[in-house]
Design a protein around this nucleic acid. Structure first.
Length: 501
RNA sequence: GCCCCCAUCGUCUAGUGGACCAGGACGCAGCCCUUUCAAGGCUAAAGCUGGAGUUCGAAUCUCCAUGGGGGCACCA
């Protein structure tokens, strides 16, 4: 089947939908599906649609839908149609499309491809156990298939509780084509008479998704491989309606970092303990940049031969569904760090400044924008996540710093020797018209050789004195920003501390 | 138990019968740079799950085995 390649190379605009159920937090698996949806839509000049599949009223959790929308927007995956933006095929919440499903399923019943079932849950349970004992497939036994349509109508009119089932062909087999795997054939005996409409009147996924994909003119269905087993059923339903099938693409699953099995609750908490998470909002809170997260997840299940650092637009240019991988992928968090840091380094100074500013203000610091702009180039290549800006630069916005006395002592020196070094450095710095990298470094280098010490020892003392910490951005550039007055003040304070030791 | 899917360095992957003594990236190791921490540069180690076939020729096609994954709900 070459249609997939054809369609994905931009000849025809694709209408693609991301259809999550609002039952929990948005994780990277969903994000990656949405990303691929988005890429295919943009690549072909089509539309990317958000549809909320909230037909399980018991499992729907408040706030989940909002988290989904926030997550998509944070990642930069703007959708063209959706619950909060509208569109020509709305409503975009399945719970608001009840009548539509009933209309369609009625048509299916008239075609003889669906039927009402009055069996109570406890009978279903009994049947299931019985068939299991006989080593048969644990499906519905089809009892209600034989009910006369008129009698069924009467019972429904009497208000009898019922559901609608799909009448799966008993004989033969069904073949459906997945872009990544080719034709998949399953004997029809393996496909149950699945429920289409539940007794609460809402459709199951099998019904809701198929009806909506058709009504919304979806051309490509990208979803998780957990749907592979019911894939032939879905093809059967679409065909029973007489509709054209979309192009089907089943993505691989994400495995835990070890590659042995999928992420469990335990794996999730282990990740959390190391500062990682599979949840999109956590990643945002941890200071990862969306560009990095996107680059990270896009490469799990898709590959490029070279040049794997990409922006969203660059992904759009290169994306092709035919290159997706059907094999499961193990999550690799250290790669997330790599892509996050790489994209942070690529940000323009103003952009990065705007992104890290909130971290300082949240820490209770008052941020001077002009100063922040000068700090950014100094810390840019040191950040893996945005919140790393705090340990590197928070001290810039503090009136005073509090170095640990021991840290003021130079390597292999005594406190007294260190005080002496600090005094000499003070004199040199005090004699300068202004402290900058170009004015301060040469004389300080001279001091080092005059004293017969090394740069590490002398700069270490000054670093602790001026920044209050042992790890910091480059010393002289930092001093330049802090200003001569404050540098001298801090060095003299360090001298006093050292003399008291 | 039944059905379905998958299989290239530790991990993500490129590879679509000859251009592959298998390319890139992360990580790891070493070296260089260096003012701490980074970043950057260079170098190295590391792989086609196994077995049968098809073919002049297989990582690439077929079959089997093994391993892994998914599913068997009035959940999605």
């Amino acid at each position: 089947m070459d249609t997939s390649t054809l369609l994905s190379t931009g000849l025809e605009p694709a209408r693609v939908r991301f259809a999550p159920s609002p039952t929990g937090r948005m994780h990277i698996g969903s994000a990656r599906t949405a990303l691929y949806d988005y890429l295919l839509a943009r690549r072909t000049g089509g539309q990317f649609i958000l549809r909320i599949e909230d037909t399980d009223t018991k499992r729907t959790v408040p706030g989940a839908e909002q988290e989904l929308m926030d997550g998509l927007r944070w990642l930069g995956l703007e959708y063209d149609e959706g619950p909060d933006v509208g569109g020509a095929c709305g409503p975009y919440r399945q719970s608001e499309r009840r009548e539509l499903y009933h209309e369609q399923v009625t048509i299916l019943q008239e075609k003889g491809a669906a039927y009402p079932c009055f069996c109570a849950p406890d009978r279903l349970e009994r049947v299931r156990r019985e068939r299991q004992k006989q080593k048969l497939n644990t499906g519905y036994d089809g009892l209600c298939r034989s009910i006369d349509p008129d009698e069924a109508r009467r019972r429904i009119a009497d208000g009898e509780r019922h559901i609608i089932r799909f009448k799966t062909p008993r004989q033969g087999s069904t073949t459906a084509v997945d872009v990544l795997r080719g034709p998949i054939t399953v004997p029809n005996s393996q496909i149950d008479d699945y429920v289409l409409i539940k007794s609460d009147g809402l459709p199951t996924y099998h019904c809701g998704a198929m009806v909506d994909d058709h009504l919304m003119a979806i051309t490509h269905v990208i979803r998780g491989s957990e749907w592979l087993s019911t894939f032939p059923l879905h093809a059967l339903i679409v065909r029973a309606f007489g509709w054209e099938e979309p192009v089907w693409i089943h993505l691989s699953v994400f495995l835990k970092p070890s590659g042995k099995g999928k992420m469990s609750k335990r794996d999730t908490s282990v990740a959390l303990d190391s500062g990682y998470s599979i949840y999109v909002s956590d990643l945002r809170d941890f200071g990862y940049v969306p560009e990095g997260v996107l680059n990270w997840i896009v490469l799990m299940g898709w590959g490029v031969s070279e040049g794997d650092v990409m922006t969203l637009d660059q992904m759009v240019d290169r994306f092709d569904i035919a290159n997706l991988s059907p094999a499961p992928a193990a999550i690799n968090f250290s790669k997330l760090d790599h892509f996050s840091g790489t994209h942070i380094r690529a940000l323009r100074t103003e952009d990065l400044a705007a992104r890290i500013k909130p971290y300082f203000t949240s820490a209770g610091l008052t941020v001077d924008d002009a100063r922040l702009l000068r700090i950014v180039p100094l810390i840019r290549e040191r950040l893996v996540t945005l919140d790393d800006c705090l340990p590197f630069a928070a001290w810039f916005f503090k009136e005073t710093v509090e170095p640990e006395p021991e840290e003021l002592i130079g390597k292999n020196l005594t406190a007294a020797q260190s005080a002496d070094v600090a005094r000499k450095a003070y004199e040199i710095l005090a004699g300068l018209p202004a402290i900058t990298l170009t004015t301060a470094e040469p004389p300080m280098r001279h001091l080092i050789s005059d004293l017969g010490l090394n740069a590490n020892q002398v700069f270490g003392i000054l670093r602790a004195a001026v920044t209050g910490q042992t790890v910091s951005p480059p010393l002289f550039e930092s001093m330049e920003i802090v200003g001569k007055e404050k540098v001298l003040e801090r060095v003299s304070r360090a001298i006093i501390i050292l003399e008291k030791m």
